[in-house]
Nucleic acid binder design. Structure first.
Length: 598
RNA sequence: GGGGGUGUAGCUCAAUUGGUCAGAGCAGUGGAUUGUCGAUCCACAGGUUGCGGGUUCGAGCCCCGUCACCCUCGCCA
């Protein structure tokens, strides 16, 4: 049994506590020994306090303090002293005082950590993930997780104030087709049957509308067995919400309110409302993406019409079936090596090539293909690009979608490289008027999901020109990241049937997969709509980070392994048998190599 | 599956053209030190240069393969 239970935290003591007897518990961050005089910085999640072991105290106390190592867990009893003016440490909030130790209790010793917990040196993410519990002890990670907690708390407060009801729904669900690849969980009771881990609570939240809950929300974990990115994990957290008897703007208003409340509660910032709105078509044309980063300009321009007759074949050919568009990097010069690197970058994302032109004094264009351009094309490029002497323009000639996406990626890439992205700025925007369907190899597919309502005025085009039909869908974008997406749903059986038919889904198939939902909609489904916000991305952005793993306690690597616990792991033959599962070696010969278990 | 990047001491990094280049700081260990706070000083210890192969008189460096991690395209209704 240990004795010295803390009376204060390590971030709490100030000059007004001077003279008090206190007990602190925490981890040894560092020990500085000056002979008989020893300083120990004691750390907990609240802060850091300097403990003094003075030679005036018992010899045993000083000897024990001298034996302390970093990350030992200790309890110290002592008196709060005001520090002399010249020994005040202005870097920490407890820097005006120190605790003059009277008693020391070692609660636990610790091995030397593989990396320092104090953060004067960067540590590779691989090592951090392997010893995640130590990484999480570092102040920056504690800040991240505590900020995330504040986000969650602000969400619950805001949703409650707005009269939403928090309702939990199952994670073990039935596989429904479409959307992300599912994780499957074999059923012990039914050989050959599987649960799927919910990729989102979509269907349940619509059912809760049928059930009359009117305003539902949930902070739900979602599971998607897709490839990972800096902003994507296998399991992630959503604020999922749904409302009845609403139109699009009601949902948008409610979620704007949540965002405003979060930013106010976490950062004390007033986010201006209403958020900007941008149509999908405009976003794609001007920013080359449906999630534009509005913190900087650098819009994409188009000279397709102007170069259609060009003697430069690349332009003339592209203008026939596609577009010729470009970006302007103002006041930035690029060496041949720089543009080669950029060309490799755009080719890596599917571009055929990258045209770069420099604007000389007097407006003359120079560089690679400049000599092929007539005065008419060069003039058009100058006008549309708005480029001045010293600027560089980059151009892509390709099919429209490709040109847009390549320039969109290049826009972000250049802005980051040229340091043109203002930090600590939050630019929310809604992207609306999404197309209802997209082309696939087999025909057309729902762009959002098959329960999304088409715009009323587009209903008549549904069968004739489905690709022109727009949906009552909306995405919330922040600083170039999609942080939410939702829609007004179809609540009428006849329209839902038309959509399913367009998607080529047979009645039999629908009965098997969605029968319960379609039936539910026949028992009085109110008009409804909703949205889901990505909490991990939102937390990442509010912290100014560029990686979702830094706001997730125990994230997985890009190859979907957990470097700490070594998952995924093997199971026993007995477990497999019980689940009626047999492991088959694949055609490549053998199972993929498992992550090493330490 | 494709494109790009990284891998050297426990941690973070350096090592000219392939040639005394196996090095530094931090951490660690031992010692010194009465006001530090990323303490300082002295000393010591610490290496399969991710792994396997190849080229070469000689490879951390070049080539091939492979593994791990990161960014990205596809994928993510």
């Amino acid at each position: 049994m240990w004795k010295l239970k803390r009376t204060h935290t390590c971030g709490e003591l100030r000059v007004q506590h001077v003279g008090q007897n206190v007990i602190l518990n925490g981890w040894v961050e560092s020990r500085r020994n000056f002979g008989n005089l020893i300083f120990v910085d004691l750390r907990d999640r609240y802060g850091k306090t300097q403990v003094l072991f003075s030679p005036d105290r018992a010899q045993e106390l000083v000897a024990l303090a001298d034996a302390l190592k970093n990350e030992w867990v200790i309890a110290v009893k002592g008196v709060v002293r005001r520090r002399d003016t010249e020994t005040v440490n202005p870097k920490i909030v407890t820097g005006e005082i120190e605790v003059d130790a009277i008693e020391l209790e070692v609660l636990n010793e610790a091995k030397t950590p593989p990396f320092p917990i104090s953060e004067h040196l960067a540590v590779s993410e691989e090592t951090r993930l392997q010893y995640r519990y130590l990484d999480l002890r570092r102040p920056s990670m504690q800040r991240n997780l505590i900020t995330r907690h504040k986000v969650l708390h602000a969400i619950r407060t805001s949703m409650d104030r707005q009269n939403f009801v928090e309702i939990e729904t199952p994670y073990l669900v039935k596989f429904t087709p479409g959307g992300a690849r599912n994780f499957l969980v074999p059923s012990r009771h039914f050989p050959g049957r599987f649960f799927a881990l919910a990729e989102s609570p979509q269907i349940f939240k619509q059912l809760s509308m049928v059930a009359g809950y009117d305003r539902y929300y949930q902070i739900a974990r979602c599971f998607r067995d897709e490839d990972l990115r800096a902003d994507r994990q296998l399991e992630f957290t959503q604020l999922d919400m749904e409302m009845s008897f609403v139109q699009r703007d009601d949902v948008m208003d409610a979620i704007e309110q949540v965002c405003v409340d979060i930013w106010k509660a976490v950062l004390g910032l007033e986010v201006p409302r209403p958020f900007a709105r941008l149509s999908y078509a405009d976003a794609m044309r001007e920013y080359g993406t449906d999630k534009p980063d509005l913190r900087f300009e650098m819009k994409i321009w188009d000279v397709t019409g102007e170069v259609a007759e060009s003697g430069f074949k690349v332009f003339a050919e592209a203008a026939k079936a596609g577009v010729v568009r470009g970006l302007t990097a103002s006041g930035a010069a690029f060496s041949r090596k720089d543009t080669d690197v950029l060309e490799t970058f755009v080719k890596g994302i599917g571009a055929k090539g990258l045209i770069s032109l420099k604007v000389e004094e007097g407006g003359k264009l120079s560089g690679g293909v400049a000599k092929f351009l007539g005065e008419r094309e060069a003039g058009a490029i100058r006008v549309k690009s708005g480029a001045k002497a010293g600027d560089t323009v980059f151009m892509i000639a390709d099919e429209e979608e490709k040109a847009a996406s390549v320039l969109g990626a290049l826009r972000n890439h250049l802005a980051a490289r040229l340091d043109r992205i203002p930090k600590e700025q939050f630019r929310f925007c809604w992207v609306v008027d999404f197309p209802m369907f997209e082309k696939t190899d087999e025909g057309i597919a729902a762009r959002h999901h098959p329960f999304t309502s088409p715009k009323d005025e587009h209903l008549e085009m549904l069968e004739k020109e489905p690709l022109k039909v727009q949906a009552k869908a909306y995405d919330l974008v922040l600083n170039g990241f999609e942080i939410g997406g939702g829609s007004i749903r179809i609540h009428r059986r006849d329209i839902q049937q038309r959509i399913f038919r367009l998607l080529g889904l047979t009645d039999e198939y629908l009965r098997d997969r969605f029968g319960f939902l379609l039936e539910a909609f026949e028992y009085g489904a109110p008009p409804h709509g909703g949205i889901a916000l990505g909490i991990d991305r939102l937390s990442m952005l509010i912290l100014g980070l560029d990686n979702i793993r830094d706001v997730i306690t125990f994230p997985k690597t890009q190859r979907t392994t957990d470097l700490m616990m070594g998952s995924p792991g093997t199971v026993t033959e007995k477990q497999l048998k019980e689940l009626h599962v047999r492991v088959v070696e694949d055609a490549e010969g053998g199972r993929a190599e498992l992550p090493s278990v330490r």
